[in-house]
Nucleic acid binder design. Structure first.
Lengths: 213, 213
DNA sequence: CCGTAGACTGACTGATCAGTCAATGACGAT
DNA sequence: ATCGTCATTGACTGATCAGTCAGTCTACGG
């Protein structure tokens, strides 16, 4: 019984180390951008020796991919948690908007990292695969919510287009938050207002002006 | 009279060379991304010696900034041309959407370059200044157009929010076109449909379903 | 026809960095 | 106590690249 015990303890230790390195990579990416990441930076951030980084991830590319995977997983978890906390479609949509444009995921650290990976997407098939899977999953969550609203008040456009538009708005607002550098809470409030106006235009009863909080 | 003549001819020659180098830089950025650009690459692309690049732009950073300026100027020109070609607000908005999501600016070469610069925005104040000025100018064009429509049929939301939302949608659809890698004409048609649905939701008379072409 | 200004060239230098590797330490098993 | 395994370390190597510089070429002015 002690053999599997040790094995599993070791495996967990390794997994923890890998996670800590991926997190360190994310932090460094946020500070220096994808091109600026140095294995030495990551090692320093993770508080370990240089060689260890390449011991766990054989190349820099694999480390960065692991960082992206961690980022995606983090986001997906936050998103499930937020949306599962509510029952009705309106509240779920509000929760998703708050997640993307509230103060939680929203710190610049994260957004800068997303855009860093976006920029490499056209050259890196692995990144592309991660993003298109994430996008697919996101739309698969969004479309039924929009569909539920559509049952109560038929909108002027196809549900898929409405969901696709919301997803695009959220991405676009993220980018614009980068060029605004920082953004105060007022700007985030404006961003959320844009989303609510969008949904309110299609579903005035559910997302009308009185739904402000 | 021959002195100013020569001087101006020389100045033009220099300007042409600088432009050609900036264009070469854009091409290389599209292929290899901002981090991947090498002065040697740019020199090869512009068909000149290595040293010339640094003779005209003292550092790599300045060359990249010039490339961004060229890109912005190109975009702004296309955008003025397109929108000045029409008189009524609806046609102008359609023209802007076609510009961003049609096949002209839309080749991946350009979009990949924009996202490459976006990714560095949080670290580079010069890029940030360019983008926020461009965004400001873009909204300044968009808001009056939306305002004109609003005179005929008052929308459910503030014109500024509607214009901001359209701008965000366009940015977001650009990003998503990157992760789709390439996108066929069908995807661009969907992107345009999303924009038209957006405007149609606020201005059903002007952008209703029958406005398809 | 010479002189010179400035566009243009590419070999060279120094710095940086990914990846290698030989050595060390920690720890459980025997 | 001894061994084996494996995480861990950091000095070293080779490659790459921005930026320098000493020089060439071109064309115009005198």
């Amino acid at each position: 019984m002690s053999k599997p015990d040790k094995k599993s303890r070791d495996a967990e230790k390794v997994a923890r180390r890998r996670r800590s390195l991926a997190q360190a990579a994310i932090t460094v990416i946020a500070r220096k951008g994808l091109p600026g990441v140095t294995l030495a930076d990551v090692a320093r951030e993770a508080d370990c020796g240089y060689g260890l980084v390449l011991f766990h991830f054989e190349t820099k590319d694999r480390l960065l991919l692991a960082a992206l995977d961690a980022l995606v997983e983090e986001y997906r978890a936050a998103w499930h948690a937020r949306s599962d906390a509510h029952d009705d479609a309106v509240a779920r949509l509000e929760a998703l908007i708050d997640l993307d444009l509230g103060s939680a995921v929203t710190d610049l650290r994260h957004i800068a990292v997303w855009t860093a990976f976006w920029a490499e997407t056209s050259r890196n098939a692995d990144y592309r695969a991660r993003f298109s899977e994430l996008n697919r999953a996101y739309l698969a969550r969004l479309e039924p919510l929009v569909g539920t609203l559509a049952e109560q008040e038929p909108p002027a456009a196809d549900c898929r287009l409405i969901a696709g538009g919301l997803s695009a708005i959220l991405d676009g607002l993220w980018i614009e938050s980068q060029i605004g550098h920082g953004l105060g809470e007022a700007d985030w409030a404006r961003a959320r207002a844009i989303c609510r106006a969008y949904l309110g235009a299609f579903f005035p009863k559910s997302f009308g002006a009185e739904t402000n909080r």
